[in-house]
Amino acid sequence: MNWLKDPLAAFLAGGALIFLASMFVSDAEISYDVEVRDADIERLHDHWNMQMRRPPTVQELADLVEQFVKDEIYFRESKRLGLDANDSIVRRRMVQKLTYLTEDIAASNPLEEAALQAYFEENQEDYRVSAQFSFSHRYFSTDRRDDAEGDARRALETGASGDPFMLQNSYNGRSESQIGDLFGRDFASALAQLEPGKSPQGPIESAYGWHTVKLTSVEAAHIPDFAEVADRVASDAEQAARHSANEAYYDDLKTRYNVIYPDP
């Protein structure tokens, strides 16, 4: 009986026994009518206000009401399933229990390689790698020179080497945003406009001075191969599967309930 040592399996087996017991208890008194009353909405509103120190927005309140409905349905369903039998656990705990139960079921089946591939195909944009620039540059300091821009411009012809620079003289495969963090945003966006080539271009102004830039290569923004992001895909897909299993379960439950909202 190895599986008895597994806490989850033991918990589920225990739950099953409770359900079997509950078969002998009538569930007739548990209603399928869920009524959201004005008082409920007011309570949700006030609770939010107390927690967040501001009233909820229309959307936030709508979400709270939906959450309330879901909780109510889970609560009733939990009772119907007998999760409360011989136990003083309150509504929140029961809802949590049922939620964990469905999550565990979703997580219990590791996704097949094919399913991961399919997930990747459907959600490619999430894995897009932004354009990567490889470049070297020469620096002409406005602090050291009277006409750094002119000196840089002339260096395009003469190949003059410029001034020492605090950062690296060349970078491999950096995004525009990373280049902006190092050199300043304007420099990065100007560099991103250049065509790659063998000759130095510019000059471009950075937060430090002027630069001639040899843009050696640009790797266009692209979707990576599945293998490169397989780990990320696996964890994202598992998350998504969990989410959709929960949704499907709730959607199915919801069809069995009549939810009555107050007149708007």
Partner: peptide, 29 residues
């Protein structure tokens, strides 16, 4: 519905056992 759900749970309990035993295969993959 309850009976069905219980059956599913029990089946799941069994499949847990299988999962433990077949761990070597999973790790290999």
């Amino acid at each position: 519905r309850i009976v069905f759900f219980v059956a599913a749970l029990l089946a799941f309990g069994c499949s847990q056992e299988t999962a433990v035993e077949s761990q070597t295969t999973d790790t290999g993959q």
